[in-house]
Design a protein around this nucleic acid. Sequence first.
DNA 1: AGCTGAATTACAGAAATCTGTAAGGACATA
DNA 2: TATGTCCTTACAGATTTCTGTAATTCAGCT
Lengths: 222, 222
Amino acid sequence: MFSKVLVAEDYEIANQGIIKILNDKIGIHNIEQAKYCDDAYLKFRKAYNDQKAFELLITDLSFKEDHKIQTITSGVELIKGIRSIQPDIKVIVYSQENRPDKINMLFKNFNINGYVCKGQNAVNELIRCVDGVYQGATVQPPELTNSSEINMMIHLDDLDIMLLEKLSHGLTKKEIRTKLKKQNISPNSESAIDKRVSKLFDDFKAKNTTHLIAIVKDLGLI
Amino acid sequence: MFSKVLVAEDYEIANQGIIKILNDKIGIHNIEQAKYCDDAYLKFRKAYNDQKAFELLITDLSFKEDHKIQTITSGVELIKGIRSIQPDIKVIVYSQENRPDKINMLFKNFNINGYVCKGQNAVNELIRCVDGVYQGATVQPPELTNSSEINMMIHLDDLDIMLLEKLSHGLTKKEIRTKLKKQNISPNSESAIDKRVSKLFDDFKAKNTTHLIAIVKDLGLI
DNA sequence: AGCTGAATTACAGAAATCTGTAAGGACATA
DNA sequence: TATGTCCTTACAGATTTCTGTAATTCAGCT
């Protein structure tokens, strides 16, 4: 089993919970924790330079900001930074994020080894995940394999996201059109915008703009 | 110190984290945990009937629904149920909720003894809270005392919340009006609804309904 | 060049939103 | 009873949304 693990998670209680699982259920005792990405990175660097490198990183994705100013602010950046030094370190992401395409992106672009979704069965999932990763497997969460989710099927391009954001900021279609024209972005007629938004209505089964924004806010798409 | 504690929290990792703190940092070892409200309630009943009542309940507010059908679905109901049997049990709420008026409501209406906000400093806050409650104090979170938040100033009554929810579900004002009339809820003219929503526009500095819903979604109000 | 399909644009009408003004009722106070 | 305030309701007009249809452009393909 892994003998040295780094846990990066800003919520202290969750941090403690992970450590308890690693301790009691998996039998890993050499664990260090960090509440901030910068802190995690420093601990990693020090251990690496001392020839006592970590074998596994368990990290959250989003870290709440507070008074401390951080250079690394997200789990993704942390992973990038650590992997650039020690490419073979195993990485498990532990996050609230449950959007399949976002999780998929982590596996594809950052080659993470496992993903555990914060939730009701996180303990067993975490145990399974650590075991699997130790044996060299790539462990995807149930959310990904079972997913018949709406947001997996729907492809949103940059323009769609931009439209949704503008709408959520209360701009009218006319204002959006003006803005697009100013920026020389290609589909910029009011009817083209109408068409696109109508398509989004279909995709998300929304009744009107307000409904649409509520849905994509709930999905965390914007 | 408390000798017997019940922890109700659906996120397993957080659950484990709380137990670890109680164990390691406060020295409480007789702890039971529950992932569901019903489960917590049953454990409480059993202990009470066996003359081995719990002295402290630490509970979350919201419990995610899954396949198991529950009769008690929220921490508030759980508190009500338990207090109706054992009025003097101490209660600490541990939740993500950070709206001052909601937290205040818990102290005022349910006489909870302490509140800890899930967050970066939850460990120390929890320790402080358990200590304080044990000594008979009422322990409010820093969020309550420091808060200069917008949502502290704006008072939303039940009708406001209902309107926002209906709007976020894509209902038109006409549909909302019909629904209110059916349920015999008093202000049910279209213009009354208009007025109320307009007031919300002012409160939240929203430009239109879509913008408004985006804002209150971001604030977590619905 | 000519064809085809997809995307963009223009236009138009019905429905809904947003913003006023005005009138009526409930309620407390003097 | 009279007065003022607050809330509800009615109505109206300008603006915006939503949903069609039809014309135009553009890229890929033969």
